[in-house]
Each structure stands twice: as structure tokens, then as C-alpha cells.
């Protein structure tokens, strides 16, 4: 259970984020959707304490005050740039979290092997260095590393943003399955409407530091009072229709949607 209580973060020369109040239940898969600068990444980083709010508080499982690094060890964190440690092998990268948690060696080794399988990587990849991997493999390793210490919560910031569309879709689906299988609570930041609609149980739309909408994908797709939200939700279907038309060879003119 993640609870944000009227959290505020002001940036010099940027929009103030919040006050935001948001409750995320255990097992939920929430997508925070919005354009760049809307405050979605700031919100995510306030959850694991990488950014300290100016006001308000964030509670994880009811716990408000704890050293940030201890909180972060219980929360998996995946972001677009991945940040694999270049001086460590794949296996060593995955083992970082368990080692911080001071697991025993055999337990760590077993965990690394299990995770490689879980994220669908060949077991012999463990000895390779990150520089020798493809983009998709790297993000799978990033995912395995975030999952290694058995966190209950996963925070993901545009996790598949840098991948090509096919890999991206496959990895998204695979992660959604892992979310179910492991009983995780996931908060994923994205600017991709389709990705949010297809993966999440619940979508929080943000604009200029405030929450514009917060509901299930189906509900948001059906209708919304806010014109900006309506336009956003309309985008994938409009694109799909145009693709259909293109496929049928019926060119309807070059009108671009905005």
C-alpha cells in the first residue's frame, strides 16, 4: 500500500508538482500518464525517496519515516537509461540488491539463476558484461536486478522507452505476466497512451503537476469530462482507424491528428 498525502515539490524555473493525494493498493498496476514536464517522474521519485517532497508525506505500508536507502531496498526501480553497472557482469549486477540485503552466497546464486529464467534470458548470459548485450537484453537485466531482492513494489520510469516497438511490446507483456505471478504492486510512468491502456489496471493522467484523471482504462476510454483527457484517450483509436484505412488502401487524405 502506497499512500501520498498532499505531497508538494517545487522546482525552480518549472511547475510545482502537487499537492498530490493518491492511494495505491497492494497488487495494483498503476500507470502515471502525461507529457514531459507534467511531474510524473517527480511523483515516482517521491515514492522511493530519491526526491524529498517539500511538504506532505509518503507512506509505504503505513511507514512514513525511515532512511531513504532502507526504503529503496524494498522497492524495485527500473528506468529508461537502465544504469547497469558497467564494471560488473550480468550476474553481479543482478546480485547487487541481495548483497545489500546481506543474503548468503548460495541463496544469491540460486536467485540470479532463477531471475535469468524469469526474465527470459539464457542462463549463460550471467557471465557477460553489460556492454556486450543488446538493448532489450539490457532492460531485461535491469528488470531482473530490480526484482532480485524480492521487492513488493516496483517503480518503473519509461522502462521500455528506448526499445524498438517489437521488443517493447514483448517486454511489456512479459512484465505484466510477472506482475501477476509475483503479486507485485507496480507504478509505471509513461507518456505512451497505448502502453498505459494495455498494461495498467488504473491510469493516473497528470498535467502541469496536477492529477487530471484517475480511473480504470476502460472507464477513461469510454468518456471523460476533461477535454484533454478525452483527446488523449481518443488518440490510439484514431490511429488504429487510420491504420485500418491505410491497410484497406482507402486513402482518406493527409489530415494529421494533433
Amino acid at each position: 500500500m502506497i499512500q501520498l498525502d498532499a505531497v508538494v515539490k517545487a522546482w525552480r524555473g518549472g511547475p510545482t508538482v502537487g499537492p498530490l493525494t493518491l492511494a495505491i493498493a497492494s497488487g495494483e498496476f498503476v500507470a502515471i500518464l502525461g507529457g514531459s514536464g507534467c511531474g510524473k517522474t517527480t511523483t515516482l521519485k517521491m515514492i522511493n525517496g530519491l526526491i524529498a517532497p517539500d511538504a506532505g508525506e509518503v507512506r509505504i505500508e503505513g511507514l512514513a519515516a525511515e532512511p531513504g536507502y532502507l526504503r529503496r531496498r524494498r522497492i524495485g526501480y527500473v528506468f529508461q537509461e537502465i544504469g547497469l553497472f558497467p564494471h560488473m557482469s550480468v550476474a553481479e549486477n543482478i546480485a547487487v540488491g541481495p548483497r545489500l540485503a546481506e543474503w548468503t552466497r548460495p541463496r544469491i546464486e540460486a536467485r540470479v539463476a532463477a531471475l535469468l529464467t524469469l526474465v527470459a534470458l539464457p542462463p549463460d548470459l550471467g557471465g557477460r558484461m553489460p556492454a556486450a548485450l543488446s538493448g532489450g537484453q539490457r532492460q531485461r537485466v535491469g528488470l531482473a536486478r530490480a526484482l532480485a531482492a524480492e521487492p513488493g513494489i516496483m517503480l518503473m520510469d519509461e522502462p521500455f522507452g528506448a526499445l524498438d516497438p517489437v521488443v517493447r511490446e514483448g517486454l511489456g507483456r512479459d512484465y505484466r505476466a510477472l506482475h501477476e505471478e509475483l503479486g507485485l504492486t507496480t507504478v509505471m510512468v509513461t507518456h505512451d497512451v497505448t502502453e498505459a491502456l494495455l498494461l495498467a489496471d488504473r491510469i493516473v493522467v497528470m498535467e502541469a503537476g496536477a492529477i487530471l484523471a484517475d480511473n480504470r482504462p476502460g472507464v477513461l476510454l469510454a468518456d471523460h469530462a476533461e477535454p484533454a483527457v478525452r483527446a488523449l484517450m481518443e488518440t490510439p483509436r484514431r490511429q488504429a482507424r487510420r491504420l485500418e484505412d491505410l491497410a484497406r488502401g482507402a486513402a482518406e487524405g493527409p489530415a494529421r491528428d494533433g
Partner: peptide, 15 residues
């Protein structure tokens, strides 16, 4: 050092 690597280290809960 690559800022992404620093962010990963912080994000994993290193002191």
C-alpha cells in the same frame, strides 16, 4: 561516472 549508473545505485538503496 554515467549519471544513470549513479541513479541506479541510489535507486537500489546504496548508502
Amino acid at each position: 561516472v554515467d549519471p544513470a549508473v549513479i541513479e541506479a545505485a541510489d535507486g537500489m538503496g546504496m548508502t
